[in-house]
Nucleic acid binder design. Structure first.
Lengths: 192, 192
DNA sequence: CTTTCGAATTGACATAGATCAATAACATTG
DNA sequence: CAATGTTATTGATCTATGTCAATTCGAAAG
């Protein structure tokens, strides 16, 4: 059942009672997105945050110069959304697109605020999640500063295991901030 | 009085009662650090997070290749520390060094856990702070992907106002992930 | 007002990665 | 299994930034 995977995720991060978990799952809704379809597009107001039950998605935006930049890949048991826009309740700047057929759960902004008040343990749950995301993101910055493409590609493959098979190379190149050509050359070197 | 600045900071982020604020400030301690002195060095276990009342500091680490990387500058009303190590309660990897004579407040790990239990509003306070830090950090990643040194330098100067006068250029170059020589050339271009 | 020493600048050259263009490998669809 | 479109690779250049070495600037100390 779909709620099981989010329940497990919550349990693995905080101590919650059955009724807390039930309160949380009771406000969730389900959505399916086919490969190539969008969960979110720029300009939309961001009413939800999404939890991936099954599938794979990418979050990206287009900058002033028209270049696309992938911010995040999301696979099973990840939360995904336009965090910034959701938090500030302003229109989104992101595209979130399914790379595979995906099933997600989502929570509404107002529901979440209500849950924070009724069950503050969920403040902790999201505080912990965002702390981890913050740390992971910092690693990504540092990796860019410290290392060349080759090392970063290896790092990427180990930190998103098996994702090379689920995501096209040009998306990985984009995430790493290099051209597909360069990534291709780097991968060739690795084979030798 | 030193507690006033942290009290203001808390009030500007969450609705707290007087007694909540008092509970929080009652566990804080004060510390002064002279220019060039260290608040934290690698290998230390991270027992505290610091709030800057006055002054300016930098947080950096040395990578495997011996290169230094500045992660954060901290000025008045910023929290600073080795977030990662504090959260996981493992030894620090960072240096935190005062760029100016600085006055700080700090909170102990166990005190903070206790406060989270007694006054969950502080879960929210820190959840909000880390959310903002997360968003700011994401901007930094994106900026690296999107822009060349010149634009990023300008962005840096606007987002850390007046810091050019407080921090040496080689530290700014380091933060931006470029060489001092390159930053120097970029600044020369900007003058013309 | 000089001396000193770290910081900033400048010049000459090296290089990782970008760009552009062509081709090859793969996958999807009729 | 052909046909078509998408993704990956390869080659030939170009460019932003790095590296190394020399010089100048500027602030602190005598």
């Amino acid at each position: 059942m779909m709620h099981q995977s989010i329940a497990n995720h919550i349990h693995s991060h905080v101590n919650v009672t059955e009724s807390d978990t039930h309160l949380f799952t009771s406000v969730l809704n389900e959505i399916s997105v086919a490969k190539g379809q969008f969960l979110l597009k720029p300009g939309t107001s961001v009413k939800h945050e999404y939890f991936v039950v099954k599938g794979c998605l990418k979050a990206y935006y287009i900058d002033d110069k028209g270049n696309r930049h992938i911010i995040q890949f999301a696979v099973e048991n990840w939360w995904v959304g336009d965090f910034d826009a959701f938090y500030k309740q302003v229109p989104s700047k992101l595209y979130i697109e399914a790379i595979e057929d995906s099933q997600l759960l989502f929570i509404n902004y107002n529901s979440l605020q209500k849950i924070y008040s009724e069950a503050p343990i969920f403040e902790r749950y999201f505080r912990i999640l965002i702390t981890k995301a913050f740390i992971a993101q910092r690693k990504r910055i540092l990796s860019t500063l410290e290392k060349h493409t080759q090392e970063r590609y290896i790092e990427f493959c180990t930190s998103y295991p098996n994702i090379e098979d689920r995501v096209p190379n040009y998306d990985i190149a984009n995430y790493l901030g290099v051209t597909p050509e360069n990534l291709s050359r780097v991968r060739k070197q690795l084979k030798n």
